[in-house]
Write a protein that binds this DNA or RNA. Structure first.
Lengths: 216, 216
DNA sequence: TTTTAATGATAGTAATACTATTTATTAAAA
DNA sequence: TTTTAATAAATAGTATTACTATCATTAAAA
């Protein structure tokens, strides 16, 4: 993780890991706007000042967990596409991993991936929709997201080296996988997917969107 | 405008119109997070309490101006697609209107459409990324966005009645027109568009994306 | 003219987002 | 073993935010 995200590395102490674990639970429960360091401190029986020693403010903490999520997604993609040769299959795997229902991973003790996925769906955009996005970008705080995007863009370029918009298409896939899911659950008339059962339809929509564009 | 958005209709009084006019200027200048009713009150030499008579809170005010924007975009689309018969041309017109650089309209005295467009690009998602999105949706607060989406979905259905995802594709166009523009200006490595000059490339990307998917 | 409605001015509160200071604990050096 | 130094925790405090309440003033409608 980028060292500029925190004042003290939360992975290195018991308290730090508790901050991460419970910030995920609490943001998921009450939303990022209502989330405060004071409420978090109460949950883990420490003090507000205790949390400020780890994170400058709650936005940095959001960035930390969002970055963690994108790094995890890229790791999963590397792992699952490792032994695939065919670029078409690699792209399909990426779509499947991004649009399928996420379950708690269990390999990471203090991070609940299912909750984290839902946080990124509901709050993820707030990590860059700020007045200081350019500064944050200079500090490389969006690197995990950009790396994932570049990896998928790479698959697209393998599939069709002449396609003109691999990066925009890759960011479109990632963003739509999350925002169509959000619409599905909250504003369904913006989608063609009815209940929560329709998760395979989202993957079909994305596959159709991508492959018809990049078809050689 | 939906009456639930405000406590007192800002269109009906001088002060109300000043609130709208200067909230657009101020949100554009300092961002929605830093924007407060107190700062706005200072700008227009009224009091904080004066603004609270019009809007319950700053989120409702954001929703008001965002809804105004989507209604304006739909009006523009109706106006410009009115005498077009060909569904392909209608879709192209929609893409063009959504992805082109917006200039101040001048027909509306107190609303600067250029600034409003930039606000929707940077802050628009915050209007629905909340814990009360379902309630707000029940109160029909997202109707203008959904209407625009449904209109574009209608064009898509005209073009190809068999295409399976007209609503998701329509919301994808609208969202990407704004978010790719944001990326272009702030996180360019997520796109294939270099400087601000590349605005026609965004339209080409979207046209390619849409028409290759819905091609009969 | 009287009533109603909108605005203005002032004050007050609980919560938020921090910062600073002091106190306690632990670890290393003398 | 005692002193010193570094680290962490606890407490307190501040400016700002997001409101609510009250009351006087002005303007428009009945």
């Amino acid at each position: 993780m980028n060292e500029k995200l925190f004042l003290r590395n939360p992975e290195e102490t018991e308290l730090g890991r508790k901050i991460i674990q419970h910030s995920i639970i609490l943001i998921h429960k009450i939303g990022f706007e209502a989330f405060t360091f004071k409420k978090l401190a109460e949950e883990i029986t420490t003090t507000e000042a205790g949390i400020y020693r780890y994170f400058e403010n709650k936005h940095r903490l959001l960035l930390y967990i969002v970055d963690w999520y994108w790094s995890w997604q890229e790791y999963r993609l590397i792992f699952h596409s490792n032994n695939i040769k065919n670029p078409e299959a690699k792209i399909k795997k990426a779509i499947q991993l991004l649009s399928a229902h996420v379950e708690d991973d269990m390999t990471t003790d203090h991070i609940n991936e299912k909750l984290l996925y839902e946080i990124v769906m509901c709050e993820g955009a707030k990590s860059f929709l700020t007045k200081h996005v350019l500064e944050d970008n200079k500090a490389k705080l969006f690197k995990p997201y950009k790396d994932l995007c570049a990896r998928i863009a790479g698959f697209i370029k393998e599939y069709n080296p002449k396609y003109k918009y691999p990066y925009s298409l890759a960011s479109t896939i990632i963003e739509m996988a999350h925002s169509q899911k959000f619409y599905m659950q909250n504003l369904p008339s913006l989608t063609d997917f009815g209940g929560a059962k329709d998760e395979k339809k989202l993957a079909s929509f994305l596959e159709n969107l991508i492959f018809s564009s990049i078809k050689v």
